[in-house]
Design a protein around this nucleic acid. Structure first.
Lengths: 184, 184
DNA sequence: ACCTGAACACCGTTCAAGT
DNA sequence: ACCTGAACACCGTTCAAGT
């Protein structure tokens, strides 16, 4: 059997979802594909790049149709889509958030948010600050939520998992600030 | 020589600051202390706990006097203190942010923010949502800023590092939303 | 209480060689 | 182009034993 890069990424997501990020090793993935570990380096230059590709694929799979007409409703829609996409896979939020911290992946959601804020009539500087703030909120909240959810299902009752209500409320707080800065 | 837990944490921070998070291994730290790796487990149950202790110590070392009288200026002050504390050590933001995602460390800053928001006259629910949103913004922004700074100093000109202006602007956006929700 | 020595069960990555 | 086989230089953690 001969594989291509997309096969490797797809199988990596299966391993991630079934066994978790700490079990997603290059050796484990190679074994899952029936390959020697060294064979993976023909498809991917290193593990970090593979994780960035996984992050992008997870977000791509969560894509939905845009419905909202108003720019601020569209922001909420984009953020909710991001959250749902990450929650769909075990440790999905951690993978995406980490990749984003190091400037990898998640470039498309950033572009969409930037567009929405620009449509809202915000200045160039505020578009950038707002986009980054929204992404940090979404990634931070979802990573914490998923960690709490997984900790809860593994035993400890720990803390409240946050939930979609808390999530939207946080986004709305930020949107308030953005709305009040629309030039008119 | 006999060590205590605090010696181990202190030396770990030195190793972190000098060689970076990826070089902070239990074996490396043990060698630095002139110990066998197994000796560390007398002071700390595992690496995760050590990292949480490092996160707390980094934040504790950055503590400053509170000056602002108004609740919203106090929020800005707390957030700026957190950012400075994390930026003071190599990979400090990543260590603190990761610990926070898993519900470890950073409990004191959370308490201080909660107090400030309560003083501002916000409802219990909003206090929680606001505190979490502020922390995600601070951790997310600072981690990204530090990663970009370190990438820049290592060669690539990559992206803009954000800076304190962008940071405060993001916090102010959120504060706008919080201010508008003060019950009166 | 704190530490050594040895082991267990792994990692990511490189590189010559094969088809 | 894609893969094997072998190696290099490491990991975190456990556990019996020592003082």
């Amino acid at each position: 059997m001969r594989y291509h890069r997309r096969d490797v990424v797809e199988r990596a997501i299966e391993v991630l979802d079934e066994y978790g990020l700490e079990s997603l090793t290059m050796r484990r993935l190679a074994a899952e594909l029936g390959l020697q570990p060294s064979a993976l380096y023909h498809h991917v230059p290193n593990k970090q790049t593979l994780l960035a590709a996984i992050a992008d694929e997870i977000l791509a799979r969560g894509k939905r149709e845009r419905r909202a007409a108003e720019w601020d409703r569209r922001v909420v829609e984009i953020c909710a889509e991001l959250r749902d996409a990450m929650l769909a896979y075990r440790d999905g939020a951690e993978v995406v958030a980490t990749a984003h911290t190091f400037g990898l992946g998640a470039s498309e959601p950033a572009t969409q948010l930037r567009e929405a804020l620009r449509d809202g009539g915000l200045d160039g500087d505020l578009v950038e600050v707002g986009t980054r703030a929204l992404l940090h909120l979404v990634f931070g909240h979802t990573a914490e939520e998923q960690a709490a959810l997984q900790a809860a299902s593994a035993g400890a009752i720990d803390r409240d998992p946050g939930g979609p209500g808390d999530f939207e409320q946080g986004i709305e707080l930020l949107l308030d600030g953005l709305r009040s800065r629309v030039r008119r």
